[in-house]
Design a protein around this nucleic acid. Structure first.
Lengths: 208, 208
DNA sequence: GCCCGACGCGAGTATTTGCTCACGTTCTTC
DNA sequence: GAAGAACGTGAGCAAATACTCGCGTCGGGC
């Protein structure tokens, strides 16, 4: 969804050996984040887990934050890939289909690497370079708003912009809680149905 | 909602002077959390902001975690107080009234100290003694489930247990995002209405 | 095969952290 | 008003942290 410009790197690895090294370091960072959380994700520990020298880490990564940025970028690329497939079919969908599509998209995104997703969203602080990354999580919002705008006639009283926002925040909130409290539900069909009903009901609108 | 048994304290302050001291320290912790976030909330900094010696902090608090526990306990007491007023009237309510009540309750809770609420929920790690505190945030769930169970006939196909869970997670998710991205909306009537519609529509049920 | 830049190393540094402890001050009790 | 308990202090410690730098190794172009 965005081109690969690794502003995170201090120096571009040119030889094969060093490209592998960078990859190993990023994967080690992921593993440490998973096992020790963000607090326990220290640069020395990452080097240790990666089986490389701390000096090698700083050869390519300017600071600790850039390690996590890299992990988030990679994860988000996978998320967007998983979601794009679904969302491509959104525009011509009926309300029921659209709800189904959106739910499948968001569910699939949360299924890519649930535990990593949880750590990244829960623990990684929204400061500095990481803040912008966090905001990119809902980069697909405009696609939903676009759909709502072209199907305005079928909808209740909410404005498309607000409705998109509420909808995504609600579904995302549920999925976030599922990730934390009921990880098993991610694979349950019932959850998907419940969310679809939530969306359809809300969008069709009800007097309140 | 729970009695005051300060297991967090290393020693109970008996004189007036020391009771005040403990209070000053807790308030300073709150201020530091607000201004510097959880990462910046160091024990030395708390002591400095409180205008007391670091030794005095450790006279009563066994460790850093216990400081934050105290802040969370105090905040949650305020939350529960704010919510209880509303939720007391829940049992005999109609669907529309119940939705309104629930939304008002959760909105009021988020309005108590929005910035602190955000820091506590976003940044405070769910580990050790803090984990249990995090889980207490939705201690009011059973009241909602109870209402759903006695009004089952008016509801759609969802089971009360699941519906409660989805509902609260959804509303809470929206409010969480509001806190982060649109803090101004907390005071907007439109947000409340949107949430009420979300609840009513979902509970009444829709074919999907 | 030789050379020079790219690569990889890890002991070491400066800083920060949570926390202790020996000592001085204030309160309470009789 | 004396004595002992409760209180308050802050220099300083051990451990951890992010990060550097000088030095040895590799690898590809000539």
């Amino acid at each position: 969804m965005a081109s690969h410009r690794p502003v995170t790197l201090r120096k571009e690895p040119s030889q094969r050996r060093s490209k592998d090294l960078v990859d190993i370091i990023v994967k080690a960072t992921t593993r440490v984040l998973l096992k020790e959380g963000y607090e326990g994700c220290t640069t020395n520990r990452v080097a240790e887990v990666a089986g490389v020298s701390i000096g090698s880490v700083y050869q390519y990564f300017p600071n600790k934050e850039s390690l996590v940025v890299r992990v988030m970028e990679r994860h988000q690329e996978k998320l967007f890939a998983a979601m794009s497939e679904h969302l491509a079919t959104l525009q011509d969908a009926t309300l029921e289909q659209a709800a189904k599509t959106l739910v499948r998209a968001m569910l699939d995104a949360h299924r890519v690497e649930p535990r990593l997703h949880r750590v990244l969203r829960e623990q990684v602080p929204r400061i500095g370079a990481l803040k912008a990354l966090h905001e990119r999580y809902s980069a697909y919002e405009p696609m939903v708003t676009a759909w709502l705008e072209t199907h305005r006639d079928q909808l209740g009283p909410s404005e498309p912009g607000v409705a998109t926002w509420v909808l995504i925040a609600a579904v995302d909130g549920v999925l976030g809680r599922v990730l934390v409290d009921r990880p098993g539900w991610l694979e349950q069909e019932q959850l998907a149905q419940e969310l679809e009903r939530l969306i359809v009901a809300y969008l069709r609108g009800a007097r309140a």
